[in-house]
Design a protein around this nucleic acid. Structure first.
Length: 492
RNA sequence: GACAAGGUGGCUGAAUGGUUAAGGUGGCGGACUGCAAAUCCGUUCUUUAUGAGUUCGAAUCUCAUCCUUGUCUCCA
């Protein structure tokens, strides 16, 4: 018996605009595809939020007992810089600027991406395919679309015929656009384009002689269009129809719209059952994006090396901060917000160790079973992590009351409570306890313990000048002493 | 300009027709302390951008106004 048989999950489907009861195509199995990064620069924090949302979703689906195949691609072929005739590959451009081979750029930023995600404690996806590794599959899809009559070739490039497609299907249904409106709103441009209509998009683009990234094809040397790789890779690994397709809100149009069109043109039916879109992370009220320069790198948060933050924040604090907002809401990053999250996060973590040392009694003043189900209810309601976290703090409150002797808990309930908290905090939210203990840390803590002992002696002798000196100077070094009933502890 | 999503307390952020608007953080009071800090307990602040309407009842539905953000070109 798997958990999912008892828990009814509902997911907000961007396509229908409603929360729908989730039922996988194949009992017990889920196929999920998420649009990954374009690896032409360091991954920024906004990207991380989207991937983190889906990491949490992946974790919860697994927790429910589903077998999930999670595919997240790496876009290493680049997209066009612009739509003009001299359209150039983003990655190729970067390569020239830095005097690097294109694949050298790809390698560098793929490593950076993995490195950052690892610090954030992401689970690796089941498959992480690359666009350049699937050129053949993309060419096959283009051939198929051409055969079905939804694309045309011009001067070595192939374009998707949106108008033709719209005659039999509905282009724009995901983003709520109508083709007629789009055409009406199109500015009149000089006809320097091979495309029949501005709405058409490239499936294959001819490579000019100076273009470095190029592959042979039935239409000559070139490179695949912007939206094709996701269709090729999702279909290859998850099938013509699969359960969940996710990505950032900004990909809804045109990227996902085009994916739908490509798949429908090819296979005659909609490729995805549940479309999920994670919302943007803003900073100073503006969208974070590489292109506008309004962004912060994760590494800059971990080190505190930036202008907008007063200090460094650990990856788990940032993760906790993000989990406190629903994935479909815009979240605004600020120093105050991170400080508040850090405080709350450490209170949550502290309560876990308090729980371990708790004595048990004959009765419980806290209905652990009901509380546990409330946690599941929150997650079942479209992965509502902020509500889940509110419930976790409800438990924190009871743990502290029990510690104070104002409430009690049975041994069985204590066990359930501990297991449930661990499952939600570590397995599902993906948080980690801070601070690894290395050899040096061991030595340091030995030194601090010594100082604590000296301070204790000074205090017993009422030599407060000495005791305060130890306390205050350690504080200046960033080491805080905490006096409690059972002695003094410290945090760095 | 077209389309879309929003405007909730000092900050952050849930709740979309039904008793006291969740939680975190901050403020205040208390416990603890030699004093602080840390920790814990309690409590407080909003009437949900503005105005009008629908309803027995609205943050939640409708209309208008103001404002913000996003998409329409690559973007998580």
């Amino acid at each position: 018996m798997q958990l999912y048989q008892n828990q009814q999950l509902r997911i907000y489907n961007s396509l229908s605009g409603k929360k729908e009861i989730f039922e996988p195509l194949s009992e017990g199995h889920i196929g999920m595809y998420v649009c990954g990064p374009t690896v032409y620069s360091n991954v920024h924090l906004g990207n991380c939020r989207t991937f983190m949302s889906f990491d949490m979703i992946f974790r919860y689906l697994k927790h429910l007992g589903y077998k999930v195949r999670y595919v997240r691609n790496i876009t290493d072929a680049g997209h066009l810089v612009d739509d003009a005739e001299d359209g150039e590959d983003k990655i190729a451009k970067k390569a020239r600027l830095e005097q690097l081979e294109p694949m050298e750029v790809v390698q560098r930023y793929t490593i950076d991406f993995h490195n950052i995600l690892e610090q954030f404690n992401f689970l690796p996806p089941s498959i992480e395919p690359t666009a350049t590794g699937h050129i053949i599959e993309q060419i096959e899809i283009i051939k198929d679309i051409l055969e079905k009559g939804f694309a045309y070739e011009v001067n070595g490039s192939v374009y998707f015929d949106v108008s033709k497609f719209n005659d039999s299907y509905e282009y724009g249904k995901l983003s709520g656009r109508k083709l007629e409106d789009m055409i009406a709103n199109t500015r009149e441009l000089a006809a320097q384009d091979d495309k029949k209509s501005p709405q058409d998009f490239a499936l294959w683009k001819k490579a000019e002689p100076q273009h470095i990234m190029r592959w042979p094809s039935p239409w000559g040397d070139g490179f695949p269009g912007w939206h094709l790789e996701c269709t090729a890779m999702s279909t290859k690994y998850l099938g013509e129809t699969f359960d969940i397709h996710g990505g950032g809100m900004d990909l809804k149009f045109p990227h996902h719209e085009c994916e739908i069109a490509q798949a429908e043109a090819c296979y005659g039916h909609s490729p995805v059952r549940y479309w999920m879109h994670a919302n943007m992370l803003t900073m100073n009220g503006k969208k974070m994006a590489k292109s506008t320069g309004n962004n912060i790198l994760p590494g800059e948060i971990f080190t505190g090396d930036n202008d907008i933050l007063s200090k460094a924040f650990s990856p788990s604090v940032v993760r906790f901060f993000m989990m406190q907002a629903h994935y479909t809401s815009i979240l605004d990053l600020s120093n105050d917000a991170l400080l508040a999250s850090e405080k709350g996060f450490s209170r949550l973590m502290d309560s876990l160790s308090v729980l371990q040392s708790l004595g048990t009694g004959n009765n419980s003043d806290f209905d652990v079973q009901a509380w546990k189900q409330q946690c599941y209810d929150a997650m079942n309601d479209d992965f509502n992590t902020p509500i889940l976290i509110a419930h976790l703090f409800e438990a924190v409150k009871h743990i502290n009351l029990i510690k104070e002797g104002k409430e009690s808990i049975t041994a069985a309930d204590k066990e359930t409570l501990a297991q449930t908290l661990n499952a939600f905090i570590f397995d599902i939210l993906g948080l980690e306890e801070k601070g690894g203990s290395t050899e040096d840390a061991g030595k340091l803590s030995g030194v601090i313990e010594l100082l604590i002992k000296m301070r204790k002696e000074a205090r017993e002798n009422k030599d407060f000048a000495t005791s305060d000196k130890i306390r205050d100077q350690l504080a200046e070094l960033g080491i805080q002493l905490k006096d409690g009933k059972e002695g003094t502890t410290f945090s760095i």
